[in-house]
Design a binder for these strands. Sequence first.
DNA 1: CGGTTTTTCGTTTTT
DNA 2: CGAAAAACCG
Length: 822
Amino acid sequence: MEGPLLILAGAGSGKTRVITHRIAHLIVNHRVYGPSVLAVTFTNKAAGEMKERVLSLLPEGSGPGSAALAPTVSTFHSFCVRLLRRDGDSLAEIRPGFTRNFTIYDDDDQLALVKQIFKRLGLDEKFMQYRAALSRISHAKNHQETPQDLHNLATDPKTARLAVIYEQYEAGLRQANALDFDDLLLESVRLLTHDEELRHLWNRRIQFLMIDEYQDTNRSQYQLMRLLSDTHKNVAVVGDEDQSIYGWRGADIRNILDFERDYPDATVIRLEQNYRSTKNILEAASAVVANNKERKGKWLWTDAASGTPIGIYEAIDGENEALFIADTINSILTRQPDTRVAILYRTNFQSRQIEEALRRYGRPYKVVGGFSFYQRAEVKDALAYLKLLTTRRDNVSLLRIINTPARGIGRTTLDQVEAEAARRNIALWDALELAVSEHWLGGRAEAAIAAFLRLIEELSQEAERGGVEAALKGILERTGYWRMLQQDTSPESESRQGNLEELLTAAAEAVERGETIAEFLDHAALVSDADTVDEGATIGLLTMHNAKGLEFPVVFIAGMEEGLFPHSRSRDSEAQMEEERRLCYVAMTRAERRLYLSWARYRRRFGGGQPEPTLPSRFLKEVPRHLVEKLNPEREPRLGDIDLHSERHEVRETARRNTYTGRTYNSIEHINQFFAERNAPASGKTPIASPVMTPVTPQALTPAAPPAQAVARREEAGQSDVPPLFRDLPQPPRNAPSPPPTPSAPAYPARKPPNAPLPPPPSASPRRRRGLEPGATVMHAKYGRGTLLRKEGDGEDAKLTISFKTGLKKMVAKYADLTVEE
DNA sequence: CGGTTTTTCGTTTTT
DNA sequence: CGAAAAACCG
């Protein structure tokens, strides 16, 4: 049990089981004191689960007695925060100004700081994207390069300038007594290196160290491991080089490849039996990752049956892909309502379309990540106030809320104060105080600032007495933030209020757990998207990265196209391409029984523009053909096929109805406006947008209708609860024999792009009644004469799209003061 | 100053 | 299409 241990655990080989059993074994059979075992996991959620599982393995079960024997389980970041908050005092010796009540700068805070610096240096995003600058700074930090190093190494003026930004970024953090995510690790390493006594203390405290997902640790995490296990060397690491997917974040694959060199007496254990997936899935995933050159190479095996072939669906476009996924899930869940399904994608924005499709079927789903709770503007505002109460030096938080809600401290005033703060090299807060005491601003501004300073001081005193919940309540009320939201009657404001109420609930719970304000804020900064995964949820939408460590009976992988997955940003480097491939391996091996891969022949890059032709992902071709079942109908789409476009339009409109903003510019309407302005319709009548849209280039975009038998088969299966609109979706032929192997290599011939946007043939839709119907000329008091292009709905609630001289306007019949002209 | 409207611009992945 | 910056107006 003692000594270094390397466990090379393939996907689905039950490594969590191995770790938990090992810990329990140590505690039960070797009488190791539980808390002296530190297990490091990748997410907080994984940590919580691991703790649970170990406790359940202890003899007394989950009784309160065994809780005292619980091991320490946490992420590296949480561990470091606790270390620094508890024992961080001596860090001040090497990081002047550091105190243990430091703030944590999350992604948004970092971004705000960089923007601030850019502004001060007279730069903008044309120089370099903020995020790009941040990621380069992070890279430098993680490779222990100082700004000076960067400057010396710079071969181009951009890098030289970046060194200056980097320097100021670090200065900004120090001035605010803030640590960013990198610092949490880096400064912990520095602290333990610097403070020998503390290091020895921790070496005694931790007798066994275990690290999960070791392939994704970075350099500072590696150093931390070395520092913490200095004397006893009882380190067990678990990882799989084929699942290393965080290279871009500094994960160093050498950590795992060189473990045996670092610890020559290490025991190595290989877990190569997969207990999760069917043989088909395992073989397919293994075949894909086998294309990587940089790997030790291993071949997983399983006792499981072959199972169903991998389903591949070639959609006509993104929307069709989404509908295919939703429809397939719908039939699966109709038959087996408890099946858990995951939809995985490369980039977060892909979720939107899939969500729309699922909503159309009324299937509840859960999206992981994207825009998390703690990133919402209102939540961040509230937390910024809270941070400011703890750390007055926190410039980023201060700037965030100084004029939210508006209190008369505008840009001009702030510019002056910022300039003065920079000149004297003091924190913004101090500069504000000086502005008041030295009167170098106008009277109005000074009064506003004085009132603000007083407010924060008062809130701060209250917070000290009352705890998090009281502090938050005080903030929301006394700053006028709550009132501001209440006065805003928009639906967004309602959801904001809801979010803040949720935050208050979280605060109340924190108080019950006896947490301080600082601990509450730490939690807010360190929760990850993956922590919010609800494994009980039936349908989950998440990125492949967030799916790490999870498993689902049914998995869809969407958007398997060159440029999307593998992502275009990985194109130029072989190493990055291999990481994409590992990501594909991770994604595929999440599936237990059924795996679907889909791609779209055309996809629009942004909301507006034309759909652009795509190429299938190289990973699709790397899946052995004999494991694949193509789910497309055999027949090519034809012109007379039922047009899904109009249906899709409906879907969109339904989804949009709630967020109706009063102005919509979609291309069909633009085209109609084009005609309306020229007033030159072929038919001689005013061209009218018929309620049913004519598809653009039907040959290219109309999805295939399934063969009649497929539909019939489906009806037989008792699925008449499917909305009629979707009966015509392409259906995977059930029980159909595998398609004959396609003979020629290019299974997915590249297509020509759809023709340039063409004006829809003005469908001479018959005019129904006279009056407020499309085509009518109307007068509006403010906008003058216009042409009614489109009408949605009937009666006084009808939504009208009207082309005025000034442009397109959408209005509701009963509110718009319109007169119809003959 | 502060709110609203228009323009621009662009999407990896995240502790 | 949607977010963020820029421009605009009361």
